[in-house]
């Protein structure tokens, strides 16, 4: 992982690195975190015949792209926070611009362009090699369930880890 994680809150780095492995569906899809910084989060979905939606063309099912976009967008919210918080997707809009090319991995790059106290806003793009030739674009909103930071005396651990 070539993560430039310098800007990401130190507490978040292990959470983000575990993100794919801790989420059973991400693991089932074979999603992997490729790169992240405070202002973006990139995941890669390897091509897998089990995820094909059209047996005649070998093109991935749209649902796979939806799930990958959701995971990438959730990751973008996590890295934008100051410490781990539970987040859930409120809504996600996906536009399918063209079919994914069979046998090629899909990259989803997401950014959280506004993280408010309760709500975060994301956009994401899915592509093979060139972000300027997108397969799909997404915009999402996430609810952040903020808990107070743990006290020095060992208060409640607010860390709920990654949620999608």
């Amino acid at each position: 992982m070539s993560a430039d994680s310098a800007q990401v809150a130190p507490e978040l780095v292990p959470v983000v690195r575990r993100y794919m492995n801790d989420v059973p569906h991400n693991r089932a899809l074979g999603l992997r975190v490729v790169d992240f910084a405070r202002d973006f989060f990139t995941v890669e979905l390897p091509y897998d015949p089990r995820l094909v939606g059209n047996p005649e063309t070998g093109v991935l099912h749209g649902g796979v792209i939806t799930a990958a976009m959701d995971s990438a967008s959730g990751g973008a919210v996590l890295v934008a926070l100051d410490r781990p918080q539970r987040i859930v997707t409120l809504d996600l809009r996906i536009d399918y611009l063209r079919a994914a090319t069979p046998h090629e991995a899909v990259v989803c790059r997401a950014s959280c362009y506004k993280a408010g106290y309760h709500v975060a806003f994301t956009r994401a793009v899915a592509y093979h090699d060139d972000p300027a030739a997108p397969i799909a674009t997404a915009s999402g909103t996430f609810v952040i369930f903020r808990t107070p930071p743990p006290t020095a005396a060992g208060g409640p651990d607010g860390s709920e880890g990654a949620a999608t």
Partner: peptide
């Protein structure tokens, strides 16, 4: 198990509902 998004919260992954 493979459609779970948050194992601790026992919640399905949102992407699976979309699918």
């Amino acid at each position: 198990e493979r459609i779970v998004g948050n194992a601790r919260a026992d919640a399905l992954h949102g992407g699976t509902l979309g699918a």
